[in-house]
C-alpha cells in the first residue's frame, strides 16, 4: 500500500469552544495513517494536544473581543512527515526567548509551548508577509 498522504486546511473563529473540534481533527488524522507502527493512542493524544495548545495560544492573544478573528490550521502528511501549521495575525513572539517553565516553582502557566516542544520533533515560528506561522513537525518513521 502506498504511504498515506493527507492535506487538511481548517479555519476556526478565535473562541475556545472550538478547541475540542480542532484537537479532534488531529486524533482523526492518526486513524487515517497506514503502516504507522508506533503507539497510535499516544500519537493521537499528542496531535490533539499540540493543536489545542497552539490554537489556544492564538485565541488568547487575539485582539478581538467580538471573536471575529480566525485561526487557520493546516495539517499535512507527506513522506511520513507530519507538518502542522498554525497561522496568526498577532504581534508575534520570538520562540527562542520563551523560557522553559521553572518546574521547581510548579508553574500554573507557560507550559503550553513546553508541551508542544516535548512531543514534536521540530518547532519554528516565522513571520510571513501578512501573518505569523507556528510550524510543528513530527517524523513518523
Amino acid at each position: 500500500m502506498s504511504p498515506t498522504s493527507i492535506q487538511v486546511d481548517v479555519v476556526i473563529p478565535t473562541h475556545t469552544k472550538y478547541l475540542d473540534l480542532v484537537g479532534s481533527i488531529g486524533e482523526r488524522v492518526v486513524r487515517e495513517l497506514d503502516g504507522f507502527a508506533g503507539d497510535r493512542e499516544a500519537l493521537a493524544y499528542q496531535l490533539n494536544l499540540v493543536l489545542t495548545e497552539a490554537a489556544a495560544n492564538v485565541i488568547k492573544h487575539a485582539h478581538d473581543a467580538a471573536s471575529k478573528d480566525m485561526v487557520r490550521v493546516t495539517i499535512q502528511l507527506l513522506d511520513e512527515t507530519l507538518t502542522i501549521r498554525v497561522y496568526d495575525h498577532g504581534q508575534g513572539f520570538d520562540l527562542e526567548t520563551v523560557p522553559s517553565p521553572d518546574f521547581a516553582a510548579a508553574p500554573e502557566s507557560g507550559m503550553g509551548l513546553f508541551l508542544i516542544r516535548s512531543v514534536m520533533d521540530k518547532v519554528s515560528y516565522t513571520r510571513q508577509a501578512d501573518c505569523n506561522v507556528l510550524e510543528l513537525v513530527k517524523y513518523l518513521k
Binding site: 489556544a56 508553574p107 502557566s109 513546553f114
Partner: peptide, 8 residues
Amino acid sequence: FIDSSGLG
C-alpha cells in the same frame, strides 16, 4: 484529555 491550562 487535559491541556496545560487544565494542569495549571
